[in-house]
Amino acid sequence: MKRTTRTWLILVLLPAAIFGKDIFLTRSGSIEFFSSAPVEDIKAINKQVSCVLDMETGELAFQAPIRGFMFKNALMQEHFNENYMESDKFPKAVFKGKIDHWSNTAIADTAIDVSLSGSLTIHGVTRAITETGQIWHEGELIKGTSAFDITVADYDIEIPKVVRNNIAKIVRVDIAVQLKKK
């Protein structure tokens, strides 16, 4: 091998080896939310959720397009986007954080409980959250789930008095992802 070629090979490969990351990701995770109020229960599901996990550091990020939430009732979906989430202004919800105590976390075939902490941005409002989740291996895949409650008012989403019996002040969110090695 000529010397220059070898130099170039090193130049290209070495940084990749040093800085290449062990990344798992998906673009088709799901988030479901449930609102249970005296008059009605409302449910929507989003199957366009992106999630990325850095296996070296335990850093984790989620991104969900707000318009990806599908409701059974099309008018509810329109109101969700137009009146509550203002999707034109705030097109996505983002979580950016990490799995706590990553160095002590051993992912196995059976689910283990983990704690997730980071910042959640919805409707343009960013808040620090800490929630629990589960993570496990399944063949090549890493699977994860988490379920937690979101207080709507925390994210400056206003529920008018006339619909307060239709929409819950606190909604439950269920997240499920299957991550593949990048």
Binding site: I10, L11, L14, P15, A16, I18, F19, K21, I23, L25, R27, S50, V52, D54, E59, L60, A61, Q63, V94, K96, K182
Partner: peptide
């Protein structure tokens, strides 16, 4: 050049996980 390349890699590296989306 080697140092320069490493420097560039650091700058271009996907520091932010959100860049993967």
């Amino acid at each position: 050049y080697f140092l320069l390349f490493i420097l560039l890699s650091v700058i271009n590296g996907q520091d932010d996980l959100l860049d993967y989306f």
